[in-house]
């Protein structure tokens, strides 16, 4: 990694016009394993602006979390390697930055919320200590000051009786409360961007609703960008502004939320939407996408989805479809829409 770029990022909070808050550009990530090279991310590009929610939708092994970890700079390298691609935060490439400069971005400017709050918190330290550590290390506050800020934060994420609970340990909190503490920790340094990796998957539905509600309110209040990584089509429909659907390490479809649900342009997205049992329609046989997600050691040639695709033709088995611009009936491109399918037109209209 280059060490030439030592300009402190984040001093200026102004984004050069025309650049997004965060841009991932043709990112590739691979892992060296005993069985060979696993290509987890194969040319992913997406962007998110302040105040915007991007949902990255995909199943296990689609590369959605690995992309996020690359953005955060928390991939274990090796075994991971980033052979090419750029990740730009306010126009600056994070991947060529010095470790020191990167550290000033991580946590302070881009923060992450993980799925499993119990294993992400240190069980032998009180939550108050862990929260105030952020202020002591990054802001150089005194213990007392930092503790007071920790209580503020716990109040802000609506933990009842924050003052009394600040000296409790993680195991003394319920799952929903622990996830709130994770959110508090992510918010501590007032980041511009939050990456939430399956933040509510481990929670019960009623608690999930509370936590998503909280996250959406805070995002609005602080005008943050939010990247929500999930496999849950319901959660996505509730909060996303735009969606990137991933399959086998690639983005197969991008679209604004309403358009994606109304009129998907990729057979994989279409299949996913059809296979959800809807509360308002008790069907006979559920639509099921045939087959299994591919092994990343051995991604099918051509379009990775072709062995499972009902529309697959000969061309799909040989030629990798690029992310086509999706156009409306009169041929004008629809803003933000793309589909990596040779037959996106047929999918859109069929």
């Amino acid at each position: 990694m280059s060490t030439t770029d030592t300009t402190a990022v984040g001093q200026g909070n102004t984004t050069p016009s025309g650049t997004s808050l965060l841009e991932v550009d043709d990112l590739h990530v691979e892992f060296k394993t005993r069985d060979g090279i696993v290509r987890a991310v194969n040319g992913v590009s997406y962007s998110v602006d302040s105040g915007e929610t991007l949902a990255v939708l995909g199943e296990s092994g689609s590369g959605k979390s690995v992309t996020a970890q690359a953005v955060m700079g928390i991939l274990d390298m090796p075994p991971a390697r980033i052979p090419s691609g750029e990740i730009r935060y306010r126009g600056q490439n994070l991947l060529t930055m010095s470790n020191e400069a990167r550290r000033k971005v991580r946590g302070a400017k881009i923060a992450m919320i993980f799925q499993d709050a119990l294993s992400s918190l240190n069980p032998v330290l009180t939550v108050g200590y862990q929260l105030s550590e952020m202020f002591r290390v990054h802001r150089g506050m005194s213990r007392k000051e930092a503790k007071a800020r920790a209580v503020d934060l716990m109040d802000r994420v609506r933990i009842p009786a924050a003052k009394e609970r600040v000296n409790d340990y993680p195991h003394q909190f319920s799952g929903g409360m622990r996830q709130r503490i994770m959110i508090a920790m992510a918010l501590a340094l007032e980041p511009d961007l939050i990456i939430a990796d399956e933040p509510t998957t481990a929670l019960d539905v009623t608690v999930q609703a509370q936590v998503m509600d909280l996250l959406a309110d805070l995002q609005k209040e602080f005008h943050m960008g939010l990247i929500l990584i999930t496999h849950d089509l319901g959660v996505v429909a509730d909060v996303a502004d735009k969606i990137a659907v991933m399959y086998a390490g690639r983005i197969v479809e991008t679209a604004p939320v309403h358009e994606l649900y109304k009129n998907p342009a990729h057979p994989y997205t279409k299949g996913l939407l059809q296979s959800i049992p809807r509360l308002d329609q008790k069907g006979q046989e559920l639509y099921a996408i045939k087959g299994l997600p591919p092994n990343l050691l051995n991604i099918p040639e051509g379009c990775a989805f072709n062995p499972r695709c009902p529309m697959a033709q000969e061309v799909c088995r040989h030629e990798l479809p690029p992310l086509h611009e999706v156009t409306d009936d009169s041929g004008r491109p629809i803003a933000g829409r793309g589909s990596a399918c040779h037959f996106w037109k047929e999918t859109l209209h069929g």
Partner: peptide, 8 residues
């Protein structure tokens, strides 16, 4: 509380 998979 169940998220409905329909943004409309």
């Amino acid at each position: 509380a169940v998220p409905v998979p329909d943004p409309d």
